[in-house]
Design a protein around this nucleic acid. Structure first.
Length: 477
DNA sequence: CGTGATGCGCTTAAGCGCATCACGGTGCGTTAAT
C-alpha cells in the first residue's frame, strides 16, 4: 500500500507535514534514523505510520508514563486496538494481560527502566520486532549520566539482530546527537535536522538585584498578556510565585515533581484548556505540554544547560504569533545553578559505601534503606562502577561536575552576549541570517510591539464557578 | 550560592545573637510496612 493511502485511510490526513515523509522512508528503507522535528510537527506519525507497513511490533521507549498514556490514547482514537504500555500504572491484572499478549501488540510502550529488566529483554529476543523508537531521545544525554542511567543502556537491552532504531527529539546539539548515535549503537544513521531558529520568539535577558526579581516578575505578568510559564529553581518558589500572582488577581498555580500524578495532570489540563493563565513551575513542567498560544516564558534564574533553556522557551509561540521570553538573572546565579546541578552527584563517601556493601554481599535495598545513599545515587553509581574501575569512578564524577559547570557557563555567556539569538543559534551550529524586529534585549526590544496588554480575567463572573467548571471538565475529580 | 532549621551559649531563665548544617531538580519500578 502506498504511504499516502495509509496516511489518508488510517490517520485521516491528506498530506504529510514537512519532513515526515523523508523520515518515514528512511525508516522503511531499514536505516537507523535520528529525526529532529519541532514540537507539534507530528513526530508521532513518524513511527505510527510505519506500524502499518512493517512486520512485527513497534517498540517505543518513552521517558514519562504520562506521555505513554497520551500516545496509547491517541492510537486508540485512530482505531488501533493492538497497543499497550507496560508500566507501573497498570494494575496487576492488566499487567498480566499485557504480559500474556506481549507478542501480539502492534505498538508497545516501555520506559528505559522497564526495557532493562531481564524479563522484558528475554521476551524481546524471541519476538518479531518491526521498529525500535526512542522518543524524546535527548533524554539519553540529559538524564543518562547522572539521573536515569538506564538511558545509557538501551542498546544493551535490544536483541543483536534488531530492526532499525528511530530516535526522535525536538532540540539537539551536535553533542546530543552524537550521544544518541553512540548510546543507541546506531549504524550509519540517516539524520534529519531542522533549524532551531524561532523568529517569533523575542529574547530578553535582564540583570536584576535578587530582591527585586519577584516584584519585576509580578509586574511583567500583570502588564502583558499571557498565558505563560514562570520557571524557577525550587518547589517552594513555585508556590510562592503562584501565591503572589493569585493575590494580584492572576489565574495562576504551581507545578513541580513532588505533586501527586493526578494533581499534575489536573494542572496541565487546566492550563491547556485556558482555565489557568500562568503556571509557576520547576523544570518538571514541559514534556507533553501541547499548548500553542503561550505568549510568555519567564525564568527567574539561569537554566542548567543551553538545551534545556531552548526547550523551555521553545514552548512559547507555537502558533507562530509573537512571544516574549524573559530571563532575569543576577551575578550570583551561575554559582547557585551549578550547586543545584551537582547536588545529587555521588561522592567519594558514596563510592566507599558502595564498595563496602558489595564486599559484604549486601543488597542495594539495604544500602538505600539504611539511608546511606538515595536510590538514584545508587543506580548512577552502580552504572559507573560496572563501566569503570573503582579508581576511575571518582574521576568520572568529577568530570561530570566539571561538565555541569561548563554548561552553566555557556548559558551565562549567551545571555550576556551582544545578540542572544545569534549566540543561541551558534550553539546549535547555525548562523543567524536575518534578524527579526525586536530581536532580543541585547539588540533592543520594545515589549509593547510584541505583546498586547494584560487583561483581568477575574472580571468574568464564571470565576465564581471555577471549581464547578473544573469538575465538569475533569470527570475523574 | 542562599535559605531556613537547629542548637549553643549567654543571661536579672525566656529569649536573643550567632554559628553550623542540610538542602535545593528532573522519574522510573518495586517493595516493605502499615
Amino acid at each position: 500500500m502506498e504511504l499516502q493511502q495509509i496516511l489518508h485511510e488510517r490517520f485521516g490526513y491528506t498530506a504529510f507535514r514537512e519532513g515526515q515523509q523523508d523520515i518515514i522512508e528512511a525508516v522503511l528503507a531499514g536505516r537507523d534514523t535520528v529525526a529532529l522535528l519541532p514540537t507539534g510537527m507530528g513526530k508521532s506519525l513518524c513511527y505510527q505510520l510505519p506500524g502499518y507497513v512493517v512486520e512485527g511490533t513497534i517498540v517505543v521507549i518513552s521517558p514519562l508514563l504520562s506521555l505513554m498514556q497520551d500516545q496509547v490514547e491517541q492510537l486508540k482514537q485512530f482505531g488501533e486496538k493492538r497497543v499497550a504500555a507496560l508500566n507501573s500504572f497498570l494494575s496487576p491484572d492488566d499487567k498480566q494481560f499485557v504480559w500474556q499478549h506481549f507478542e501480539d501488540y502492534r505498538f508497545l510502550f516501555l520506559s528505559p527502566e522497564m526495557l532493562a529488566s531481564q524479563a522484558v529483554k528475554g521476551r524481546l529476543q524471541q519476538m518479531k520486532l518491526g521498529l525500535i523508537v526512542v522518543d524524546e531521545a535527548h533524554c539519553i544525554s540529559q538524564w543518562g549520566y547522572d539521573f536515569r542511567p538506564d538511558y545509557l543502556q538501551i542498546a544493551d537491552a535490544l536483541p543483536a539482530a534488531r530492526p532499525p532504531i528511530l530516535a526522535l527529539s525536538a532540540t539537539a546539539t551536535a553533542r546530543i546527537i552524537s550521544d544518541i548515535e553512540h548510546y543507541l549503537a546506531m549504524k550509519q544513521p540517516a539524520t534529519f535536522i531542522h533549524s532551531v531558529d524561532r523568529p517569533n520568539l523575542h529574547y530578553e535577558a535582564l540583570e536584576i538585584e535578587p530582591f527585586e526579581k519577584a516584584a519585576a516578575i509580578i509586574k511583567q505578568v500583570t502588564t502583558f498578556e499571557g498565558p505563560g510559564i514562570i520557571y524557577t529553581q525550587s518547589r517552594k518558589k513555585t508556590m510562592e510565585y503562584a501565591s503572589m500572582l493569585q493575590q494580584a488577581g492572576v489565574r495562576a498555580t504551581f507545578y513541580h515533581g513532588g505533586m501527586e500524578q493526578q494533581d499534575r495532570m489536573l494542572v496541565q489540563r487546566q492550563f491547556m484548556h485556558g482555565e489557568l493563565d500562568w503556571i509557576c513551575a520547576t523544570n518538571a513542567f514541559g514534556m507533553g505540554i501541547h499548548k500553542n498560544n503561550i505568549r510568555q516564558i519567564i525564568h527567574d534564574h539561569l537554566p542548567q544547560t543551553v538545551s534545556s533553556y531552548m526547550q523551555e522557551v521553545g514552548r512559547a509561540g507555537r502558533d507562530g504569533l509573537p512571544a516574549l521570553v524573559t530571563l532575569y538573572y543576577d551575578a550570583r546565579d551561575a554559582a547557585r545553578t551549578v550547586e543545584v546541578a551537582t547536588l545529587d552527584l555521588p561522592t567519594d563517601v558514596h563510592i566507599s559505601r558502595y564498595m563496602a556493601y558489595a564486599d559484604a554481599g549486601k543488597t542495594r535495598a539495604q544500602l538505600v534503606a539504611n539511608g546511606e545513599m538515595t536510590d538514584t545515587a545508587f543506580r548512577v553509581l552502580d552504572y559507573w562502577m560496572r563501566q569503570l574501575a573503582p579508581s576511575e569512578v571518582s574521576q568520572k564524577i568529577q568530570e561530570l561536575a566539571a561538565d555541569k559547570q561548563q554548561q552553566v557557563s555557556a548559558v551565562a555567556k549567551i545571555v550576556t552576549s551582544t545578540c542572544i539569538r545569534a549566540q543561541l543559534l551558534a550553539y546549535f551550529d547555525e548562523q543567524l541570517l536575518e534578524k527579526p524586529q525586536n530581536c532580543c534585549s541585547a539588540c533592543g526590544i520594545e515589549r509593547h510591539a510584541i505583546l498586547a496588554p494584560y487583561t483581568d480575567k477575574n472580571n468574568s463572573k464564571d470565576l465564581l464557578n471555577w471549581q464547578q467548571r473544573l469538575n465538569q471538565l475533569l470527570p475523574f475529580n
